[in-house]
């Protein structure tokens, strides 16, 4: 067997190894031939000394597969992390987004109502302009009452807002923890 036959046989046996690793492996044998030939050995002699390419390839492949299996573990981890993220986002979309939109919608509506009630005494101005001072006492009392309710509601809404903000924050932290936890496993 010649040098070229040895190299091409080894190359085809290492077909399943990725290009970069294979080149590195082949390089070592090419160097071996170059130095051996420079030292006055024949190709035949060197091939004989190197031994069966099948045995060499078996050795290299066993090692290569172990390394790959180790890498696969991290790919598996990543897959797990992606799955965790995805299933969590599915859960988020189906079970969380609906209620959250509902709650925030109601919160927004109540907040607007609170603001409107609070500024309701201002409605007295167009009332006076259009209808004059008829029933003004009743209207003043009514708007003062509504304004009071609006102020109380506003205070309530501020507290509710803080609560919702904290719950949302906590829920986001929970998401991050689940995703990270999946990755670390």
């Amino acid at each position: 067997m010649s040098r070229n036959e040895f190299i091409s046989q080894l190359e085809s046996l290492l077909e399943s190894v990725n290009q970069a690793d294979r080149n590195e492996i082949i390089y070592d044998y090419l160097e071996h031939f170059d130095i051996g030939l420079a030292n006055g050995k024949s190709e035949e002699e060197l091939v004989k000394e190197l031994g069966d390419p099948k045995v060499i390839a078996k050795d290299l492949l066993a090692d290569y597969r172990v390394t790959k299996a180790e890498e696969d573990k991290s790919i598996g981890n990543m897959y797990k992390a992606i799955l965790a993220t995805f299933s969590l986002s599915f859960f988020n979309i189906v079970f969380i987004v609906g209620p959250v939109i509902g709650i925030f919608g109601a919160y927004l509506a109540l907040s607007i109502a609170a603001v409107v009630l609070t500024i309701s005494p201002l409605l007295l101005i167009p009332q006076v302009i259009i209808y004059g001072f008829d029933n003004i006492e009743l209207n003043i009392f009514a708007t003062i009452l509504l304004c009071g309710i609006g102020i109380l509601m506003s205070i309530g809404m501020i507290h509710t807002g803080r609560f919702l903000y904290n719950v949302t924050l906590r829920y986001i932290r929970f998401n991050i923890r689940v995703i990270k936890g999946g990755k670390a496993k």
Binding site: I25, Y29, H32, L50, V55, D59
Partner: peptide, 14 residues
């Protein structure tokens, strides 16, 4: 067999 030396060197390097 000289050829088996290179896989060994590769592993030891890794």
């Amino acid at each position: 067999a000289d050829g088996t030396l290179y896989p060994l060197l590769r592993r030891l390097t890794k």
